[in-house]
């Protein structure tokens, strides 16, 4: 889940004009670019950044939901949540592997995450406070992620596009489960419905921020569009998301926390209130309530697991050596 509008893409590239033109011709002809194909350095770098941010988001995203596994209110919900968090880890792994096809190693990417150099989706710096948040995350956060990812299924880079196709199907299943949690709450007692509304109030705006700020005339974003890494603007995707989510909220009997939200007949879509981009940048830059904690957790887990990884490597080496000497002895 959870790709967000790419932050800080650098599309700069230095190849000669003929090479770039030939590459662009392939893109324009909707040919998929594959790992062994020649590609501009800027294209490769943009993709590495995008795919690794996406992978990091999956990994960090395990924390807010993982926080509720031990407290899930029923066995069925517990199993579904555990499976969902496993799924996110699996998607992270898949995406790291997809990024590796571009010549970057998982170790490098992990190092960038742990050092704080790499970004991940800002939504995970918001805490999951109540059980209803697990519903809201599934419904809204997965919903926003799917909106982003459906278009990535047509991304020009083959392995990423194909990964997205498979991942999107599993995400849809999650979103359905999340929405189902919301339904159960909204059909429940007064206090359950209040939990649901409160979760919507807290997750609505951060979900809209997941699409990233309006690009305006950003050169980088345009380059991503030309290379067909990106195929829609952040605002377009955000609008699609709002248009899909408002009727879902109405069906639940919940109120979207935006007094300026209203239907615009002319554009056949909703107009929404001002998004607090100061908050977005503050959280992206490290000052959300959970930023430090999320990274500290990852670093602690990395530190605590070091002896295990060392042992596994040492054993694998001994094993290889034993097998080699057994072969020699046999000859």
């Amino acid at each position: 889940m959870y790709s967000q509008g790419l932050i800080g893409a650098d599309g700069q590239t230095h190849e000669d004009a003929a090479f770039l033109a030939a590459f662009q011709a392939r893109i324009d002809a909707e040919q998929k670019i594959e790992p062994n194909d020649p590609m501009p350095e800027g294209y490769r770098k943009t993709l590495v950044r995008q795919i690794s941010q996406h992978a990091h988001s999956e990994i960090i995203g395990m924390q807010p939901e993982g926080n509720w596994i031990s407290r899930a209110p029923s066995l069925r919900r517990k199993a579904a949540l555990l499976a969902k968090v496993q799924d996110e880890g699996g998607h992270g792994l898949y995406l790291y592997s997809a990024a590796e096809t571009l010549g970057v190693s998982r170790e490098e990417m992990t190092e960038q995450l742990l050092s704080g150099a790499a970004k991940y989706s800002s939504i995970f710096n918001y805490p999951a406070l109540t059980w209803a948040d697990i519903g809201a995350i599934g419904w809204l956060v997965d919903g926003a992620a799917i909106m982003n990812q459906i278009v990535l299924c047509r991304c020009s880079y083959g392995p990423y596009a194909r990964a997205m196709i498979r991942i999107c199907k599993e995400e849809s299943f999650h979103q359905r489960q999340g929405y189902e949690i919301m339904i159960a709450l909204c059909n429940g007692s007064k206090e359950q419905k209040e939990l649901a509304q409160d979760a919507l109030n807290r997750f609505w705006w951060p979900s809209l921020m997941m699409f990233g700020p309006p690009e305006g005339d950003s050169v980088h974003s345009n380059q991503s569009m030309i290379w067909k890494i990106k195929r829609f603007s952040n605002d377009d995707l955000r609008d699609k998301f709002i248009n899909a989510s408002v009727p879902q909220a109405e069906k639940l009997g919940l109120t979207i926390p935006d007094s300026d939200l209203k239907w615009n007949e002319a554009k056949q879509g909703y107009d929404h209130g001002e998004i607090d981009w100061d908050e977005f940048w503050r959280v992206v830059k490290g000052d959300g309530i959970c930023n430090r904690e999320r990274l500290k957790n990852r670093r602690r887990v990395d530190r605590d697991g070091a002896w295990v990884r060392e042992a596994a490597m040492a054993h694998a080496q001994k094993r290889r050596a034993r097998m080699a000497s057994a072969r020699i002895a046999a000859e």
Partner: peptide, 14 residues
């Protein structure tokens, strides 16, 4: 379940 997100490798987490 307490191990979720805490395992020594991502593979082991899964």
């Amino acid at each position: 379940g307490e191990w979720c997100g805490e395992a020594p490798t991502l593979e082991e987490d899964l």
